[in-house]
């Protein structure tokens, strides 16, 4: 019996999964093990599945995902640091029938762009906001983020985040859930196949909300790892995230169909 090669397996009838055409062929600029790539793919898969590739305008942030537009194969704008929700507001107001989303990290969305985030959410802009929270500034070399955990070591909190002098980590997702302008608020992760499936479902729900004209922002936080910034191996960083990030940033829906979930 001859050996079965890869070519024997990759036949149209055997293909149950393929890369979405809405991810470009450009090699991702993210560190191996990082959750950004998976999240990019999920968003693009959902847009493809909903048949919105010609109707979508995305807004990329400043931070590790500053080059998101290189990988996402839809019309994209690159915003100044923190301002993505302002761009998205105007795009959606001027093209109400288009699908508009922002993609931001914790520094972008929860520090420098706090005002834009809160006001876009409070005005009830009919957009999708995706928020990657890895508790660190990855792009600039691992400095403290607004979401850095207490005691966590970063380049600007080398002895650990001291709450007395450096302030508390900001739970932006809990905050925006309290605003009347948010329609769907959820916190997800992408470190295991099961988590990826859940996150995909949440992203799809968010985009479906927008297509259905639901009033308000659909806001998805993805708690993610930063193995480079955290100075860990990818697997180790995921374990650390599960043990340390998840207790503080609890996964699950915070608000569905405009109603807060009782926990």
């Amino acid at each position: 019996m001859s050996e079965i090669t890869l070519q024997d397996i990759i036949k149209p009838e055997n293909l149950v999964y393929k890369k979405t055409s809405l991810m470009t062929d450009k090699a991702l600029s993210y560190c191996p093990g990082c959750g950004h790539g998976t999240t990019h793919r999920l968003i693009m898969e959902v847009i493809e599945e909903l048949g919105q590739e010609n109707e979508t305008i995305g807004v990329a942030p400043v931070g590790c995902s500053v080059l998101a537009y290189e990988f996402m194969n839809v019309d994209m704008q690159e915003a100044a640091h923190g301002r993505a929700p302002a761009l998205a507001t105007a795009i959606k107001r001027l093209w109400p029938n288009k699908v508009v989303f922002t993609y931001q990290g914790d520094g972008d969305l929860a520090a420098i762009g706090t005002a834009e985030t809160i006001h876009a959410c409070n005005r009830g802009e009919r957009i999708v906001m995706v928020f990657i929270n890895n508790g660190i500034y990855g792009m600039t070399g691992g400095q403290m983020a607004p979401t850095t955990l207490p005691g966590m070591k970063t380049a600007t909190s080398p002895y650990g985040r001291d709450i007395a002098t450096m302030g508390n980590p900001l739970k932006m997702t809990e905050l925006v859930a309290t605003l009347p302008g948010t329609y769907y608020v959820t916190r997800q992760s992408v470190q295991t196949p099961a988590a990826v499936r859940k996150a995909r479902k949440a992203i799809k729900k968010a985009f479906q909300n927008q297509l259905d004209g639901k009033p308000g922002v659909s806001f998805i936080e993805v708690v993610s790892n930063c193995n480079s910034g955290w100075k860990m191996e990818p697997v180790q960083s995921n374990t650390w995230m599960e043990e340390n990030m998840f207790p503080f940033y609890q996964l699950g829906d915070l608000k569905v169909d405009g109603k807060l979930i009782d926990k």
Partner: peptide, 15 residues
């Protein structure tokens, strides 16, 4: 804010 206004121009003008 004015910061948001000018960035709304970026978003809207960009379309």
């Amino acid at each position: 804010s004015e910061v948001a206004s000018i960035n709304m121009l970026y978003g809207g003008g960009g379309t």
